[in-house]
Design a protein around this nucleic acid. Sequence first.
DNA 1: CGTTCACTGGGCAGGATGTCCAGTGACCTG
DNA 2: CAGGTCACTGGACATCCTGCCCAGTGAACG
Lengths: 166, 166
Amino acid sequence: MAIDRLDGRIILLLAREPRIGVLEMSRRLGVARGTAQARLDRLQSNGVIRGFGPQVDPAALGYPVTAFATLEIRQGQGADVRAHLATVPEVLELHTTTGSGDMLCRLVARSNADLQRVIDRVVGFDGIVRAATAIVMENPVPLRIIPLVEQAALLEPPGGDPDGPD
Amino acid sequence: MAIDRLDGRIILLLAREPRIGVLEMSRRLGVARGTAQARLDRLQSNGVIRGFGPQVDPAALGYPVTAFATLEIRQGQGADVRAHLATVPEVLELHTTTGSGDMLCRLVARSNADLQRVIDRVVGFDGIVRAATAIVMENPVPLRIIPLVEQAALLEPPGGDPDGPD
DNA sequence: CGTTCACTGGGCAGGATGTCCAGTGACCTG
DNA sequence: CAGGTCACTGGACATCCTGCCCAGTGAACG
């Protein structure tokens, strides 16, 4: 479950050069190919690395506007609302949060005007009592995981690999 | 900029089987290898596909708690706050939103107790006037892009490739 | 009509992958 | 302390993919 330094270096390497092969990876890490292979397999079956899906930029698809909507849900309507939101392509993400009947969802739209349409579609559903929307203006810290990985790799294990990071 | 059906199918294929090669891809798509190669290159230099970084699960790293914090920032302190938050590994994402001096950030922590530590570290900074935190309980719709890609691929172009999706 | 562009289909050398294997050292356990 | 387990090494092999090149075709456009 916990990752050691070698695992951490593998993840960092993959984050920097995702298309790298196992052989090249083993060379950079200074370990045998089989080791790199095994570690990578383990990281994936562990669920630490969920996959290598393409990271698609909504803006490049024509959806440059991002917003977060806080939704207040009528008691007992949660499941219906979830199902409804799942059908809206512009809903990229949905969380239920503390605060009874509260949800938070990430939306994208083609423009500010289009955002109105998306919001109408999102909140135009019976179980939703109230909605508050915040439009994203800047994204100073894009979704990242590297710092966490580094911390986890240093925190958890005793050793794992002797020499410093590549 | 806009993507056509072939582009859409490429992205869907990559999302389903990220480790697929260009050759196999061209076979599935029913096009020549050079075509698949060229399309993929274009998607990447377009910025539609930003990369293929490993998708790391914070929970599997030992950070199973996710929360969203809304921060109110003192006027003129924005840059300082951004810089401060960027140094906190548990801050996975940061947005500035509408509402003067408002920010929204995504946090992770090792436990609810640990979340307190993280929040303290996050808000323990001068420019932050107020903070409201919502802990994530469920994630009915994990971050996704496929539905948007499908919509974009069908919306934008006339044609792009004759036969239906694989 | 000529040019440009995207796509096809083919070929080639170099390199990577998947898959074995035997040997070694660390660690745990009876 | 002996035996077993486990992770890692270093090497081997056939197969497959990659990057790169090329000639030819068909459609769109000026």
